[in-house]
Design a protein around this nucleic acid. Structure first.
Length: 435
RNA sequence: GGAGGUGUGGCCGAGCGGUCAAUGGCAGCAGACUGUAAAUCUGCCGGGAAUUCCCUACGGAGGUUCGAAUCCUCCCGCCUCCA
């Protein structure tokens, strides 16, 4: 992350405007703009530990906290060690299974450090905080909670929330999930009391939970607090954002390698890319406008996509990872493999599936390519492998092989050790030779 | 409980005794064009062996027939109507 110092020195104004031009405002509480312009505000956003890693969808609220910090406000990232034990019914059509306490603890450990990477905790003027609502939710006594907090909730209002209503019309909802909004409201109240937190941000699906918190704070303390909810990210194609054939795109390098992460952003459609630059990067309006121009003039250069992939990958994985992802991309999409050493190849194809071969199976005539493709799992059967070769979709070391009877020989292995199989444009498989 | 209908490849959906590995659409894969985009076009799309071969498959189990996804019997699932 670039130094937020300059931004911090900027006057604390127009935070809402900044969010607005980036398309990040779905709805706000009344008077939020004046509140943000009146001085330093402490804002929070919660992240429930449903998995051991955050995914790209979580970037929007996470970056929102970082943006607020750059604009001089104090962010609090909250991990749901308590609420995660319950499960938020918002946007869920079915009751879910409870996570075990161990699983929750494990997930918290995972996302804690990811959250931390986006915020500046050492700032003198606007330090960030990281808190866990398990701290208060997991210890409060039921009767105390019902007397002090529950008393402020009206059943009518609770039942009227969309997340509850839709479930009542359908498969029903358990008492456990029904109480979720009380817990989240209580979080807001605690943060309001302990940290003077007066703003909660989140996705638009959180509106009901956030306003419930605002009401609670008003009833308990008589003070006003605020909500800012952001639209859910959509794709022009109407598909779910953040999903690939391989599943969700995670921030954890173990789950989604930096290379795949980079590729995910690089493959953004033209129609989406400018919007995503505003949503997912800190690039300013001038820079994004310039990229939009370039996209219009020379779409084939994909400068906007490259900038997007670079920025977001750097933010999540660092510049070194970006450099490596770029290098891998160049080789995988067009570059010649011959010039590389086996070590380079192994490095670039680090995450590509691979299997080992013993030298014995490699007779003097070589090993038939058809069988190798099938064994590698690039195609489901030998017949499919045959078709693939016939159609010209099979490559050995990035060179098309169209001969069904072709074999690979020892000489084909780079440095006598590694062979790169490819199906179509993007599917790779590595074959290494045991020595 | 009674009557009728229906169950086909990842999904939808034809076929109703041989020419059926099964029309068509969607999805998927590859190729061309291109920009690792979109659209379009072409080819492929059960498995194995390979130039007209074998195996497995039309809910399940039996049967009729030279031959069945197609006919019969029983069973199972789903749907509709009547009680």
């Amino acid at each position: 992350m670039s130094s937020p110092t300059a931004a911090r020195r900027r006057r604390i104004v127009s935070a809402l405007e900044e969010f607005q031009w980036r398309g990040l405002v779905f709805d706000t509480s009344e008077g939020l703009e004046q509140h943000l312009n009146s001085g330093q505000v402490t804002a929070y956003c919660g992240f429930d530990p449903t998995a051991a890693s955050l995914h790209v969808g979580n970037l929007v609220p996470l970056l929102a906290l970082a943006r607020l910090q750059r604009l001089g406000h104090c962010p609090i990232a909250l991990v749901g060690g308590g609420t995660g034990m319950i499960g938020d019914p918002s946007g869920k059509s079915q009751e879910r299974n409870l996570l075990t306490a161990e699983k929750v603890a494990e997930n918290i450990a995972g996302i804690r450090q990811q959250l931390a990477a986006f915020l500046d905790f050492d700032s003198k003027s606007a330090p960030a905080q990281l808190v866990d609502n398990g701290e208060w939710l997991n210890t409060i006594r039921l009767v105390d909670f019902l007397r002090e907090i529950g008393k402020h909730f009206s059943l009518g209002a609770m039942l009227a929330k969309d997340s509850v209503k839709s479930r009542l019309d359908g498969p029903g909802i358990s008492f456990t999930e029904f109480t979720y909004q009380m817990l989240q409201s209580y979080d807001f109240l605690i943060l309001n009391q302990r940290y003077q937190c007066t703003l909660q941000v989140g996705g638009s699906d959180q509106w009901g939970n956030i306003t419930a918190g605002i009401d609670l704070i008003r009833r308990v303390g008589g003070t006003k607090s605020h909500a800012l909810v952001m639209p859910l990210v959509t794709t022009a194609a109407g598909t779910k954002f953040g999903k690939t054939e391989a599943g969700a795109v995670w921030l954890d390098a173990e789950r989604t390698s930096p290379y795949r992460f980079y590729q995910f952003w690089l493959n953004t459609a033209d129609q989406d890319v400018i919007r995503y630059l505003r949503t997912f990067t800190f690039l300013d309006a001038d820079r994004i406008e310039a990229l939009a121009q370039e996209l219009a003039v020379a779409p084939q250069k994909r400068a906007a996509q490259r900038a997007l992939a670079h920025e977001v990958t750097a933010l999540v994985h660092g510049e070194t990872a970006v450099a490596r992802a770029q290098q891998s991309s160049e080789v995988l999409f067009g570059g010649s493999i011959e010039a590389l050493t086996a070590d380079d190849v192994l490095e670039i194809f680090d995450e590509v599936p691979s299997h080992r071969l013993t030298p014995e199976v490699l007779s003097d005539e070589g090993l038939p390519l058809i069988g190798l493709l099938a064994d590698a799992g690039l195609v489901p059967s030998r017949g499919a492998a045959r078709r693939l070769v016939r159609e010209g979709g099979a490559y050995v070391n990035n060179q098309r092989v169209a001969d069904e009877k072709a074999s690979v020989r020892r000489e084909d292995f780079l440095d006598g050790r590694v062979l790169v199989l490819r199906k179509g444009q993007k599917s790779y498989h590595l074959v290494t030779l045991e020595v």
